[in-house]
Simulated assay, not measured.
Amino acid sequence: MNRLTFGRPAPGTTRTARGWEWRWTGTAVMGILNVTPDSFSDGGRHAALQDALQAARTMQAAGVSVLDIGGESTRPGAHPVAAHEELDRVLPVIRALRDADVLLSVDTMKAEVAAAALRAGAHLINDVTGLRDPEMRRVCADAGAPACLMHMQGKPQTMQLAPHYDDVVTEVHGYLREQAHATLAAGVPDVILDPGIGFGKTLEHNLSLLRALPDLSAGPHPVLIGASRKRLIDLIAQVPDAADRDPGTLALHLHAARSGAALVRAHAAAAHVQALRVQDALTRPALDSGVMPHDTTRNHA
């Protein structure tokens, strides 16, 4: 059972003594909704509001638990975007989806953008800098919004130039635990931890972190893995076009689920929901009736 606490009501949550709690078993899917012209895989596809809303509805119908809305690319070498431009991209989408029965996450590094997004109806913040900015912590605490803390060595513009660690697992896990402690101490209701696959890491760094997932997942906080269409798949399987990397993405994310990840962040969200349901049926014990948990209405082959 995974849990995430909110300081205010949010879709799918239940009131508890600590706040509003979202509970789920297994691995949930966070669908990627980039409303940018320059994201590495789907830049421009959802820049128009109607295209973004259609993609959101399709992912929601497929069973995603969270929609992660991003208005600034963080691909290697990406150029920064002004806060007003980022807000012009994300706010119309948030406002149009605020009454949808799905959790809305905003992928941003800026406290100004996070504050406006939460006022507009977003429920949580996904920060690739791990809430290093104290103002970002204050924004999340004031809004009662949990945050996803990601590890990134350097900045998007420079992070892949020469990443180095003495012990990548120890350093990344230690950083995430320290940031979680500081974030919760600042009044943020809860956190998700993300080791930051592809953010300031070589192929071997990424593989080491993925192999060490059981250690991070054994801790008190839910873990998110976002390896969707990333370059490590090309380095492993020779797939130069990011749009062709969904099979490799599924392999990495199914491994993450088996290793205890509570969420995976994916472009091909519907395929992930389907694959995770099948894996869940294979790995959970059969019911007394002999019917698997996700197949209680059909007994035929």
Score class of each variant (00 low, 15 high):
P11C: 06
G248N: 11
R18I: 05
L33A: 10
A186V: 03
G70P: 02
R284P: 15
H181W: 05
D101I: 00
H253D: 14
M59G: 01
V188G: 01
Q54C: 08
A55I: 07
V93G: 01
D167E: 07
M136W: 08
L207W: 14
W20H: 15
C140D: 13
R245P: 10
V29H: 01
V168W: 06
A111M: 07
V169T: 07
E204R: 15
R45E: 15
T296D: 11
G260C: 04
P214T: 05
H267W: 03
V93C: 09
M136C: 12
A117H: 02
A143W: 00
G144Y: 02
R95M: 10
F199C: 08
H294W: 02
A218C: 05
V169I: 12
L203A: 03
V188C: 04
G154F: 00
T27C: 15
M150E: 09
V191M: 07
M159F: 06
A266Y: 00
H267S: 14
L213S: 08
T283V: 07
A268N: 15
L203R: 14
V264W: 00
D167M: 09
D51E: 14
A281S: 14
A10E: 05
A48E: 15
H181T: 13
A122G: 08
A10C: 14
W24A: 06
T183I: 08
L250V: 15
A180E: 02
H164A: 14
G77T: 03
R75K: 14
N34T: 10
P220W: 00
D51G: 03
T170I: 03
D241L: 12
W20M: 13
A28T: 09
E85M: 09
P163Y: 01
L49E: 09
H255N: 07
S228P: 14
R137S: 12
P80T: 03
S65G: 15
V66T: 11
L184Q: 11
V128L: 04
T108S: 07
A122N: 06
D42I: 05
E72H: 09
P285T: 08
I94K: 03
A270N: 12
P220V: 11
R137T: 13
A143C: 10
T58S: 13
I125E: 01
I225W: 01
Q279T: 10
H173A: 10
